[in-house]
Nucleic acid binder design. Structure first.
Lengths: 223, 223
DNA sequence: AGATTGATCTCGGAG
DNA sequence: CTCCGAGGTCAATCT
């Protein structure tokens, strides 16, 4: 990791064109070749960057001192250095990596374990039920034995409803399943997504992740 | 901007839970309060972060030296510092900001200027034609005076077709427009999106951004 | 390698 | 403020 703080201007040419006027910024050069230009504010996203793999060439000419970073996709990032304020390097070594808990996969897991938290009497047929256009998150049967397709999202937005609609269209083609009903499940669902779900004939349920996790541990206590 | 390189372990609790075991990393503290933890590789995304606004509290106790970053949404990022290898600070000042060229808005602009590059005889009615569920990118009339709704995307994927379908559904409710036809325009369109567009009765067109820009400058040369 | 999909998405604009 | 759409989306997963 090399950290250069410098007064610089930057040009990117590739999937689009972008230009940064002269100002003080951090230039971060990672061990794998990644380059990122950061301002002193504005979340974690850099103003400009170039991912690995790439090649860095140093140029000194009439236009001043420049770094030209380019990759095989013909993208180039040109950093013109006007004045270096600070320059430190440090070997960090490999990172053991991030452990996460609470993403969509976990939510689906918890719901598969307690389908009744979605709807009274619901029984799981299987998770990731395959169709030609991708797997349905949960396939269940309700109290009257009707097949229920369930789309699980952490945040319920409009495209999740479209996704569910496409899956159900597919499932209907399999006559052995009979009439298939749709349920849209998320920790919170946007108003527009609720309206669209209803107009498509789906029901929707908002569930609480912590509550589900609590139920799960309660169930575990029984054994 | 303060840049601390340190052997540290990190815990995030908020929208999900995440943990980073002890290792050497960069801790970036921006002037607006943003905090980001970077490894020495892996593109520009940090391993962990906390956006502004937030408050940083320093704690020294039996567990060692820690920074606890928290915001009003009850998210916390806890950084335990085991050994500081480097610590530099620099005032960067405000950034003049990034100038971009080549995004969807420009593509729409160029198409609005030359609708015939989409289809022979097409005339623009207006850009961003409003409907109850959002604006249609371009509304045109064709040679036979039929209304044509056009969805513009840089990359043509399946959700853009759904978007166009929703808009046309809306436009049909306005009887004064008559029968409305749909055209899906993008620099490149995925095969699945082409199939879906056709099955919805839409046509699709792939256009070249550089060529359009060329046409535009050719037109300018005429005057 | 390409396609699909989630993301602590981020970011900006419009209502 | 929220909602919605775009992104040089990125990054993981699978086919």
């Amino acid at each position: 990791m090399r950290l250069v703080i410098a007064r610089c201007s930057v040009d990117y040419a590739g999937r689009l064109d972008a230009h940064l006027p002269e100002a003080n910024r951090l230039i971060m050069l990672k061990a794998d070749g990644c380059v990122a230009i950061h301002a002193d504010g504005g979340a974690y996203k850099p103003l400009n960057w170039m991912n690995a793999p790439n090649t860095i060439v140093e140029i000194d000419d009439d236009d001043g001192h420049r770094w030209v970073v380019s990759n095989h996709k013909k993208e180039t990032l040109t950093i013109t250095l006007h004045e270096v304020l600070s320059d430190v390097s440090e070997e960090l070594g490999d990172d053991p990596g991030l452990q996460k808990d609470g993403v969509e996969a976990h939510l689906q897991e918890l719901l598969a374990a307690s389908p009744t938290s979605i709807e009274e009497g619901l029984k799981l047929v299987r998770r990731e039920y395959p169709t030609a256009i991708g797997p349905v998150d949960l396939l269940c049967r309700d109290e009257s034995d009707q097949v229920v397709a369930i789309e699980v999202k952490r945040r319920g937005e409009i495209d999740g409803v479209e996704q569910l609609a496409r899956y159900i269209e597919r499932l209907q083609l399999d006559s052995s399943l009979g009439e298939v009903r749709g349920v849209y499940v998320a920790q919170s669902i946007k108003p527009q997504a609720k309206v669209l779900a209803e107009s498509r004939g789906f029901t929707w349920v908002e569930v609480d992740y912590d509550e589900l996790r609590g139920m799960k541990s309660d169930e575990l206590k029984l054994f």
